[in-house]
Amino acid sequence: MAELQGLGAELSEAEKAGVQVVAVSPDPNERSHTMAKGLHLGYRFLADRDLAVCRRYGLIHPRGGPNGEDVPRPATVVLDREGIVRWMSLSTNFQVRPDPGDVLRAVRALGA
C-alpha cells in the first residue's frame, strides 16, 4: 500500500469523496483493512485469494513469494469514470512503487 501513502494527505476532502480506491490482494483482509483506515480514502478491499483476477489480468510474479508461491505483480492503475485505463504503473522491482505524486497527478488529470 506504499503507493497510496501520501495520496490521502494530499487530496482535498472533495477530491477524496470523488475517488474510489479499489485494492486487490490475496492477503487476508483484516490487516489490509487496518492499514486502509490511515489512508482516509474511499476504499474497498477485495480479496483475490486464489489470484484468479491477477491471473486474468496477467499480473502474476511466478514463484515470487517467500515460499516460492505465485504472488501478484504489484500494479497501480487509474481508471476514468467510464472505466477506461488512463494511467498505470507496473512494478519491475518489488522495492519500487509508483510515487504517490504521480498517482495524484493521474487522478487530478481526470478532474476528480
Binding site: 495520496l7 474510489q20 480506491v21 492477503d27 491477477c54 492503475v77 476514468d80
Partner: peptide, 8 residues
Amino acid sequence: PVVLVFYR
C-alpha cells in the same frame, strides 16, 4: 475515477 491497486 478509480485507483485500482494490486498488491502482495
